[in-house]
Nucleic acid binder design. Structure first.
Length: 574
DNA sequence: CTCAATACTTAGAACGCATGAC
DNA sequence: GTCATGCGTTCTAAGTATTGAG
């Protein structure tokens, strides 16, 4: 079947040949640009190493911790961890059993033998004074004078200047995360079984440095040494360490606007592959409608994480089959937690064949069993790339997002002459929103949402009152004008009419704003904008609509998409 | 090939600062 | 000037992709 797919695909259209040709041209261009052999990411790399967070400052003598009502002076190590907990006391995490249990277990490990003997019940711990001290500190920071704030800013800038940049192949590049992650209590997303565990302080002895052999090797902090210094130019990271919660490796890497990222495989390149999918997506869709039978294998087990799934790892409890639902036949109801424990809920009508297959896959299984027990992401992507070179699930996502944006922009925006910039931007946001909904990019409603919505509503109400008052005045003025017919009175009518119109306009604007905000309550636009939408679509739209590109991309985004802003013409089509 | 380790991208929340309304 | 609010930045968790060992 893969062979046949490829043949069909190759013969179907001239435009495919064209796009294939284009891909090769881009490949060559990219080759030219990168100028290094495969797998080599740089020839020269020099940096100052990561920035370490400041050492723990023990509590002042007048701040106390109490156990069972009695004052206890904690050892520095135990005290530091106690402060982590105290700082989070306002957060609801600290009320959760898993969080508390994990915290307490790890905390006890930091205690001295004596402390461990004494402190056996978290419920008997009183962190009140530590908590109060933390809040006072936050408050004090907020109330700093202008000069103090300025001094702090300058100090931070000094750190950025020293540690925030590296030299990569003769270019000074901004580092994305040059700071070692400070210690604290782990906060996973969703019901994470490890929430509350102690994330330990990283020492230079834990850190591997990666740089050029011939570069100036970064100095470890005084009295310390690095775990290792290596010179591996097949990777892009500058430093790494292993964190203690999941045992995962953390990396110090470059900023998103660096050459390495912008010309890396992920950015421009992914959009070209996705564009190519446009020319053969119909074939591929027809094909998978034909062979609705896949048979592969595999399972996997990892260290405990929050219970989340993706399309390949769905379990049978995540879908419900409805032969009939409302007025539709063969409906699949999805309900599961995806990445970041974000819920996906949807009812999707499918064709009979798919419905029957799903039913078959669920047979003789029980809760906890995988729906597609012979499928995994590797297998899926292998199959996809046999349909079109470079095709993966992610390419589909990029394609779907970009094509949706383009369609929505066409549907939602009028000609450039028809509307004001604000209205154009609203349309752009709506198109962006449609994409975010498609990709299930959700956010928690902002904490201040209800309040700010109420504030806006109050403004709207006030404006409404104002409007009716203005209308009333207009009516009065008209009556006056009719009975008297003086020029002055007529002028007054005109003035009142203008006032009513202005009022109406402002009211409309606010109402639109309220709608926009309400619609955006649980939708996050940033992720799709940054990661899935071909920036050339947006740049072309700006050119066509005569909207400055600054209105849709901020500085950071303009840096990241500089290549698209430079090269895109108004007639660009995804 | 499989599995685990490693590398890199994607993600939402928290933070903090600029801005604009009053 | 004050204050809320929205926005950009920072942070780091949580995915996917790739590599490499056996």
């Amino acid at each position: 079947a893969p062979g046949r797919d490829f043949t069909i695909q190759r013969l179907t259209s001239v435009s495919q040949l064209m796009s294939f040709f284009f891909i090769i041209m881009v490949l060559l261009a990219r080759w030219e640009e990168e100028k290094y052999e495969d797998g080599v990411k740089w020839k020269f790399l020099e940096h100052n190493g990561p920035y370490f967070p400041p050492e723990y400052q023990p509590l002042p003598d007048d701040v106390h911790f109490y156990y069972n009502g009695k004052e206890v002076k904690l050892s520095p190590a135990a005290e530091e961890v106690a402060v982590f907990f105290a700082q989070m006391l306002d957060h609801e995490y600290t009320t959760k059993k898993v969080f508390r249990d994990n915290f307490f277990k790890d905390w006890r490990e930091e205690m001295t033998h004596e402390e461990r003997l004494l402190i056996k019940d978290l419920g008997k711990c009183d962190f009140g004074e530590l908590h109060a001290m933390h809040k006072a500190k936050v408050e004090a920071r907020k109330n700093m004078t202008k000069e103090e704030k300025q001094a702090l800013k300058e100090a931070n800038q000094k750190i950025v200047d020293e540690y925030g940049y590296c030299l990569l192949d003769h270019h000074r590049e901004r580092i994305g995360n040059f700071k070692i992650e400070p210690p604290g209590l782990f906060r996973g997303r969703g019901e994470h079984p490890k929430q509350g565990m102690l994330k330990k302080r990283i020492q230079p002895e834990d850190v591997i440095i990666n740089c050029s052999k011939e570069s100036r090797i970064p100095e470890p902090p005084a009295g310390h040494r690095w775990k290792e210094v290596r010179h591996d130019n097949s990777v892009t990271w500058l430093a790494s360490w292993t964190e203690n919660i999941q045992g995962a490796i953390k990396y110090i890497m470059l900023n998103a606007n660096s050459k390495l990222k912008v010309s890396g495989p992920a950015s421009r390149w992914q959009y070209e592959v996705a564009r190519k999918l446009k020319s053969c997506v119909d074939d591929i869709r027809n094909q998978y409608m034909k062979d609705l039978h896949s048979r592969e294998m595999e399972k996997r087990q990892k260290t405990p994480t929050a219970d989340t799934v993706g399309c390949c790892s769905l379990r049978i409890e995540h879908i419900t089959l409805h032969k009939q639902l409302d007025d539709k036949e063969f409906v699949v109801e999805f309900d599961f937690l995806g990445k970041d424990s974000i819920r996906y809920y949807n009812k999707v009508p499918v064709i009979k064949k798919v419905f029957k297959n799903l039913k078959l896959f669920m047979e003789n299984k029980e809760t906890g069993d995988e729906l597609f027990d012979r499928l995994n992401t590797g297998r899926l992507n292998k199959h996809l790339s046999s349909l079109m070179p470079g095709l993966t699930a992610k390419v589909f996502r990029t394609y779907n997002a970009s094509i949706t944006l383009q369609q929505q922009l066409r549907e939602l925006t009028n000609s450039k002459l028809d509307s004001a910039t604000a209205e154009k931007l609203l349309s752009y946001n709506r198109a962006n929103r449609a994409v975010a909904v498609l990709c299930n990019h959700q956010r928690a409603p902002p904490k201040t949402f209800e309040q700010s919505m109420a504030n806006l509503q109050a403004k709207i109400d006030a404006r409404k009152d104002q409007l009716s008052a203005a209308k009333e005045e207009l009516k009065e003025a008209k009556k006056e004008a009719k009975s008297k017919g003086e020029a002055d009175a007529k002028l007054l009518v005109e003035r009142k009419q203008a006032a009513v119109a202005r009022c109406k306009e402002q009211l409309l604007k606010m109402e639109v704003q309220a709608t926009d905000r309400e619609e955006n309550k649980q939708i996050a636009l940033g992720t799709s904008k940054l990661n899935y939408l071909d920036p050339r679509i947006s740049v072309a739209w700006c050119k066509n609509m005569e909207v400055p590109v600054e209105k849709i991309y901020n500085k950071t985004q303009r840096d990241k998409f500089a290549w698209a802003i430079d090269m895109t013409e108004a007639d660009f089509e995804f």
